[in-house]
Amino acid sequence: MSSEVATATTQGHTHRDDAGTKLGMWLFLFTELILFGGLFIIYAVYRFSHGAEFELAANELDRLVGTVNTIILLTSSLTVAMSITAIQEGKKNLTLLLVGMTVVLAFAFLLNKYFEWDHKIVAGIYPGSPDLINKPQGVILYFGLYYVMTGLHALHVIIGMVVLVVMMFFVKNGTIHKGSFVRLEAGALYWHLVDIIWIFLFPLFYLLH
């Protein structure tokens, strides 16, 4: 332990311990996973008790939209991962470009999601709508979970975008550079989390048969 001791950031002077910072970030990601874990438990319980109705409801989702969004997010994970390599090699402009692409892809994901939700809402499928209330209980539960889980995920996409934009700012003004890029790594980790959660949401809602 001895060499990593003097790492506190007290008022005045700052020391560094990147491994510690990443440990903290990983712990935070665990809590996010567990947060969604609660929702996955609920999903599992209701899917078990209302299996047939869940499949019925899933037919109303557009698989193509879901697939496109999955491809978009996977690509964005790739670009953000490449940005780490770029900053390690000291290529500042390339880093900015790659993180920027990630943000653009995130925006495309949200746009797609917006049209999908809008389409559903116009069709009268949203929590508390008169159309939905009359459907079987499993369908109500399915769409309740659909809106809550994809909505909460979308919120995480937005937070991730904000984080990445801030990282771009740091890269630009030189706070993040070749010798110190743990913040960018933490931001990228967060982005991968957003991606991974979607990887679970996609089959659970779109690929039911």
Partner: peptide
């Protein structure tokens, strides 16, 4: 929003 997740009248399970 009246999402039915725990509300039994919408199919939800209060014991959950």
């Amino acid at each position: 929003f009246g999402v039915g997740i725990f509300d039994p009248s919408l199919g939800g399970d209060p014991i959950l």
